[in-house]
Simulated scan of single mutants.
Amino acid sequence: RLEGDADRVLRSAMSKLFREEADVRELIKLKAIYELLESVTDRCEDVANHIEGIILENS
């Protein structure tokens, strides 16, 4: 659920960024940061899934 929330926030932020940011260099930097944050949330979801699997396997 949280990863889905993060995806929605990312889409909203990207949309706002491309609508409102006039400085191309700033746009490129912020876009890269947003994409890294998305990658982090995806990895966190992967870790949570692994932990859940370990807990279920050992219970």
Rank of each mutant, 00 (worst) to 15 (best):
K29Q: 10
E52T: 13
N49W: 05
R11D: 12
E38M: 11
K29L: 12
G4D: 04
I33T: 06
A32W: 02
N49H: 09
E35D: 09
R19Y: 02
R11H: 08
S15E: 15
I33H: 04
D42A: 15
L36I: 07
V40A: 08
A13W: 02
L36H: 09
V47D: 03
K16H: 09
E35L: 11
S39T: 14
E21T: 10
R25G: 07
A22S: 14
E26F: 08
D46E: 14
R8S: 06
E21I: 04
A32Q: 08
C44S: 15
E52S: 14
E52Y: 13
L36Y: 08
Y34I: 07
L17D: 01
V47Y: 07
I55P: 00
L2E: 06
D23E: 02
S59A: 15
A22H: 10
I54C: 06
E45D: 11
D42P: 01
A32S: 12
D23K: 01
E21V: 08
E3Y: 07
R19A: 08
S39L: 15
N58E: 12
R11V: 06
K29N: 09
L37N: 04
Y34E: 03
D23F: 01
A13Q: 04
R19N: 06
D46S: 14
I55L: 12
L2R: 08
L27D: 01
E38N: 12
E45L: 10
R43S: 12
K29W: 06
D7S: 05
S15Q: 13
D5H: 08
C44T: 15
V24C: 05
L56N: 13
R11P: 00
L30K: 14
A6M: 06
L17F: 01
N49D: 14
E35P: 00
A22M: 09
L56D: 13
D7G: 02
